[in-house]
Nucleic acid binder design. Sequence first.
DNA 1: CGTCATATTGATGGGCATCAATATATGTGG
DNA 2: CCACATATATTGATGCCCATCAATATGACG
Lengths: 236, 236
Amino acid sequence: MQVGEHGAMQEAILETIRQLPHFSGLAESTLRRLADASRILRPATGSLIIHEGEPCRAFFAVRQGAVRVFRVTPDGRMQILHRLGPGRSFAEAAVLNMSSYPASAEAIEDGTEVVEIGAATFLALFDTDRSMARIMLTSLCCWLRDLVSRVEELSVLSAGARLARHLLDLPARETDEGLEIVFPTSKKEIAERLGITPETLSRQLRRWQDREVIISKRDRVVLLKPDTLLTIAAES
Amino acid sequence: MQVGEHGAMQEAILETIRQLPHFSGLAESTLRRLADASRILRPATGSLIIHEGEPCRAFFAVRQGAVRVFRVTPDGRMQILHRLGPGRSFAEAAVLNMSSYPASAEAIEDGTEVVEIGAATFLALFDTDRSMARIMLTSLCCWLRDLVSRVEELSVLSAGARLARHLLDLPARETDEGLEIVFPTSKKEIAERLGITPETLSRQLRRWQDREVIISKRDRVVLLKPDTLLTIAAES
DNA sequence: CGTCATATTGATGGGCATCAATATATGTGG
DNA sequence: CCACATATATTGATGCCCATCAATATGACG
């Protein structure tokens, strides 16, 4: 393997593990060490990435495609435990316990790419760097809090209320008209995050614009009456 | 305070912190040490539990009632960051960072009870007991995985598909009729967990019973055709 | 300027909540 | 043991929110 390619691969690995909830917040130097202990696997569809019962040497982050984690029941049937897409990881618990893999995993899409993070290096870093555990815990706590909120919101709140909350959470800038929010991502992604369709998002913004609660431009909104949005966010 | 009362209070504290995602899995002895460093607060509605900017001495778990975490914006308006109910915790990140509180928190219901877990003791334990960090991380990883799945399911799957998945996840027992599942909680709670109403749950079970996929009794179901449920769980 | 992804707007239908009534369990005190 | 009260489940009728499908519009970019 050439040096250039190696560097590019390191970048690709870095990009992937930096976005893991477990690692977000870690120092760049720590991330690089982890990346050095990692490599990218491109398992063929249907081929096993880890085998249940084997001693665990690594954990994994999905870059592309999809992976399913499963066990084989005593009577020989496959029980699927999880399906994982890009950005998800698996087998961290096995690494932390230094146990053997409690399940198997296989790629289930063509072109699946998985980052393999070596257990030994990870654990060595973890035990050496005292701040690492704290940073990881801090990050996971924040994610956990966020996800719990989202579960509650998805199961209780209407699409409008969820959107109102989301708008109020976004960083805003004072202007002479009102609070201006520039969308950090496409509306498609915002809709996906809120568990609604882009159409519903569009319509909701339109409705609020007609009621003169907001001004909706292509990639930004101006909140004319934040209090009205607060009310909407609180109810139903 | 009397010894008997003290013991009862310790039990109450233990019960609360044992259910925190962060601590589930910790050894009983560790939990007891944490409980010894904790006490129960009963803040009056509207009274502050923590003050933004103060050095952090503890983090907290809500036992009863509700708490809101907020900041005061430069222009004097209150920005609510979270509302927390029983079983939720806050200010863990501040403790892990050993920083000052980044926000304030107040009780917003009468009869609110909060467990205060001393930062010094927690950090001392954390730094002494090498397994503690791993156990906490393991537990949080599992919660994270579970929550991510639930968010995905809530935002894309139908009520029927979510229920089918849940049934297949529940512990089952082989009988001569099929897989028997005894509900561990009331149907009301199951419905709540799945983000549906009890009525919808009832109707869905009825529909499957009419199609002879399951037999639905009061507090249990028998899966006659698990494969059909698997199909339902996979689609829409 | 044509191509493509993203956004908006309209029409339609279904899933699921809501409201309401009944039935079944669980528990309480006479 | 029964009558009563309360919580939980079931079942029905109704309506609305929101997804879906489809068409158009608007921008981004080569």
